[in-house]
Amino acid sequence: MLKNWLEAFRLRTLPLALSCIGMGSFLAAFYGQFSLAVCILSLTTTLFLQILSNLANDYGDSIHGADSADREGPKRSVQSGSISSKAMFNSIVVFTALSFISGIMLLYFSVGIGSSTFYVFLGLGLAAIAAAIAYTNGKRPYGYSGLGDISVFLFFGILGVCGTYFLHAQSFEALILLPAASCGLFATGVLNINNIRDIKSDKAAGKNSIPVRIGMDKAKVYHGLIIISGLISSIIFLLLTNNYKTILYLFFCYFLFGKHLSNMYKANTSQEFDPQLKILALSTLLFVILFGISILDL
């Protein structure tokens, strides 16, 4: 039973949640505004949200037919019968509650209860919970309209990184939008791989992701643009903040991303695309760690 739930949590996607919080926290430390409590609670809240999103996606796709017997990717829990639909629904309720409670604690230690900033971030938190659930659930799930890429870019990039930074610093630096965009673009790349892999089953289920709309070949080009744009955004930040040596620190990551893109362009089957999900997620986390270590001279 535990194994089934761990599979449903989709642990290989969790590095993306860690990446955006890590980037925001590293940037806060770079500008002299780091708070350990904010870092820990931000990580906890984001992990709960990511697991909630994965569970809701499993449940929603099983309801709408995207996780049918024709699906070429890894079998999902509800579809395979390893977890019942009712149990999955109950787990969604539990992780919604955990995300909310953890988020309230985060706001309490960062901006305090009752301030105007508290209500702004409370609204953003509720929006994140709603977005996690509505991706594949409801009468008009936005993931079925090709809007998942925008949502991932915002929540794993701009809002995730900049929001974390603000909770540390109680202020905002315009330049952090660049590394925030990098995280968002890399996370969007992970979603794009998932959607390329599932083109056949998604098309049959009426899930009009971007790869379904533009086809595999153009989706590969789109993927390359996403990853390269993410790298360029981070390099521009490093140049503008005079962190030239960090570009050298990240050389190994550039190699990993380049190898990943090469494998993506060669891939044609779900079995070839699927490993690239984990590779890109882990490469993103490594990128953030090396980026942070370097700009802080650790």
Rank of each mutant, 00 (worst) to 15 (best):
S171K: 09
A66R: 13
S262K: 15
S85H: 14
Y249C: 10
H223N: 08
T284K: 07
V111T: 08
G146Y: 02
K3Q: 14
N263H: 13
P15A: 09
S171G: 05
N194I: 03
A132G: 11
L126I: 14
G103L: 07
A37Y: 12
L285I: 05
I226W: 08
L52P: 04
Q276V: 07
D149T: 06
Y31M: 03
I129W: 00
L159Y: 14
R213L: 15
D198M: 01
N263G: 12
I210L: 14
C39N: 09
R76F: 05
I193G: 03
G24T: 02
Y244C: 03
N243R: 12
G148C: 03
D70I: 10
I176L: 09
R213I: 14
K245D: 12
L2K: 14
L49T: 01
F257L: 13
L175E: 11
A97Y: 02
A132P: 03
N263F: 14
L52D: 00
I133C: 02
A181P: 04
I236K: 01
N54F: 10
S77T: 08
F34V: 00
P275S: 11
F121H: 01
F273D: 02
D61E: 02
M1P: 07
L185T: 04
L256Y: 11
V94H: 05
S233G: 01
V288G: 06
L107C: 02
G157W: 01
I92H: 00
Y144T: 03
V93E: 01
S99G: 03
V78G: 11
F172Q: 06
E173P: 02
S115C: 01
G103Y: 11
G112K: 03
M88I: 00
S35G: 02
F172A: 06
N195R: 01
L154W: 10
A29P: 10
D67H: 04
K86A: 13
N4G: 13
G22F: 09
A56H: 04
I227H: 00
